[in-house]
Design a protein around this nucleic acid. Structure first.
Lengths: 209, 209
DNA sequence: CAAAAAATACCTGTATTCAGGTATTTTAAT
DNA sequence: ATTAAAATACCTGAATACAGGTATTTTTTG
């Protein structure tokens, strides 16, 4: 049984090359090669890959933010980040989203294949020493499962560029209510900065398809 | 008759991927894949390839310096630089060494193959980045005219999710200075909401190298 | 060199967001 | 029908951002 893979990398040559390498090994089926990270969320939502390979450096939507989004999917894919530079701090940033692997583009491809094999079998592989292992498994959530209907409505209004005050007017609510909802949203999604929140807000698809 | 190629790129995955892509096309014979640019000169001196593909960003010996070296070889190979970011100024720097092509890693591999074909036939091909344009990126050129160097630096730091206070620390500035810069940026770009500012921040490509 | 542009820094007041609460009512689920 | 979840609303203090200034120094440029 071949492992179903989606590759997300804006560098087409690399994307295609990696795709070929995986195909050649005979163990992988490439469901999609995505060149624009902004499309990854929706693609993975329908394709349901077992493994998602994500580049770290991408325009518009960087690897970290993308991984955060992908983790809100109901379907739990294994996520492996492939970075140009194997940086410890970079890895730390990803720890929160409990990715299954972090590999470097500078590694020989044989090594990459070996690492991926291990990851498929359930191991986690971090090319730079993993010093602190997470003691408990967090529950992974679907955005829609985690957020309530009202909270999604609040997000939709915020997507229009409204302040909490304006959202309150729009939805005929008290300012305090809106703030409460935002507070709960922030708690659930654990944003580390305003930038992250707005990045999420700008890229997430809230309308039903 | 297959074209004899040497690939120089420290990113093994990319190197191997490109190698596979070329082999698959049936038109190329890979004489060597070199992962350490410092070895490229001697290798090419003995292998005498018709075509040398060189990555731009490499440790120890960058693409530009390597090309300079390779041009001192008696054997005249066609040299094509493959870069992450197709920047006009980068290309200019290479023009002095009369390379035959300059391609971007973001181009579809079919396009790369087509370009290489042309180059083999004697043409020179210089690809300048084809941008997927967002509303803001269209105006990026004028944006750079509008914003000062420091202001762009501030934006870059903000892109990391920093607050003004953190940006000040990062750049060894006063908090007030950072706020002044932000104020000027906001005045120049006339954002109507925080959402708009962060949308801009998240979508704009500030690195240009 | 003189003028303009850029970078630096400070001040004040206001607006907005965030994070910690508490608490009641409405709705959904067992 | 009872319980749990969701939605509502309020309070407060702190952090951050925004908008209006002023003002000095440094750098660039004609």
């Amino acid at each position: 049984m071949k492992t179903k893979v989606v590759i997300v990398d804006d560098h087409s040559l690399f994307n295609d090359g990696l795709s070929l390498i995986l195909k050649e090994s005979g163990d992988y089926e490439i469901l999609a090669q995505i060149y624009d990270s902004r499309k990854a969320y929706n693609e993975c939502n329908t394709l349901l890959p077992q493994l998602i390979l994500v580049d770290y450096n991408m325009p518009f939507l960087d690897g970290l933010t993308l991984v955060k989004q992908l983790r809100t999917l109901v379907h739990r894919s294994k996520i492996v980040v492939i970075s140009m530079y194997a940086d410890r701090r970079e890895i730390e940033a990803f720890k929160a989203y409990e990715i299954e692997g972090y590999l470097s583009k500078t590694s020989p491809s044989a090594e990459i294949l070996l690492s991926l094999e291990k990851i498929i079998k359930g191991e986690n592989v971090f090319q730079v020493k993993q010093e602190q292992k997470t003691s408990f498994e967090k529950d992974f959530f679907s955005l829609k499962k985690l957020l309530t209907k009202r909270e999604v409505e609040i997000l939709k209004a915020l997507k229009k560029g409204y302040t909490s005050e304006q959202v309150a007017q729009e939805l005929c609510l008290s300012y305090y209510t809106v703030e409460t909802h935002r507070k709960n949203i922030n708690q659930k999604l654990k944003f580390n900065s305003k930038k992250e929140f707005y990045e999420f807000l700008n890229t997430i698809e809230l309308e039903e398809k």
